[in-house]
Amino acid sequence: MATATQSEIDHEIAQARATYEASVAGGAARTAQPAHAYPPYRSTALRHPRQPLVTVALSQDPEAVELASPAFGGTDVTALDHDLTRQHQGAPLGERITVSGRLLDRSGRPVRGQLIEIWQANAAGRYAHQLDQHPAPLDPHFTGVGRTLTGDDGGYAFTTIKPGAYPWRNHTGAWRPAHIHFSLFGTAFTQRLITQMYFPGDPLFAHDPILQSVTDAAARERLVARYDHDRSEPEWSLGYRWDIVLDGPTATWIEEGR
């Protein structure tokens, strides 16, 4: 298949959104999660299951393995892991930022003491990964990998630099909006989440099949951090705030329903 142009991809994105809105208008429930099959993101073509997912009803199954989650603790992170600007001998190039917020469950309760892992491109839009051959400079002072454990209020905070946009080969002229990858654990394995956080006002949003794979507009908004001036530090860093809500049933949820 010939490589699509951006305007062809934009058209496919619009079509997928219209199909979703029509299904909601027809009575289908809104869904925050992206469909597994999303044609504008070409790599989904051979990798999405064609069979429907099989539902496991955990409400009848308190012993299910997926109602518990792996535990992480103080040995799994180091004191510098949350500060991606201090992991090398010098300071990385780029705009210093903090990203902070809370990790919550669907009931709005904090998820305490759980592992958050992040990774990102450097300020020029390049990952410290051998397969990333985008001709932008690597930064010897930036690896772009961080970890932390959430606090008692579910809170987390990272100091890093704002990542750059970068090209990819989904279609001709494809660019990813700047983003930070987040990996999260909850109290139940059902809540496991890997996602991406974006920066407000990015002009690439409308053209990006990965962000747009979330066809629900309100859900898509929840992937965008807010600039929070109160979290900016004078003459030091810009503050972004992003709260994360884990989907998926938990033991607490199910017990309360009885």
């Binding site: 925050a32 992206p34 669907r106 962000l211």
Partner: peptide, 17 residues
């Protein structure tokens, strides 16, 4: 009560993290 954060692909570069 809280609205869930959507998932996004892990992408090709998780190997460094």
């Amino acid at each position: 009560s809280a609205r869930p954060t959507p998932a996004q692909t892990v992408g090709p570069f998780h190997g460094c993290a």
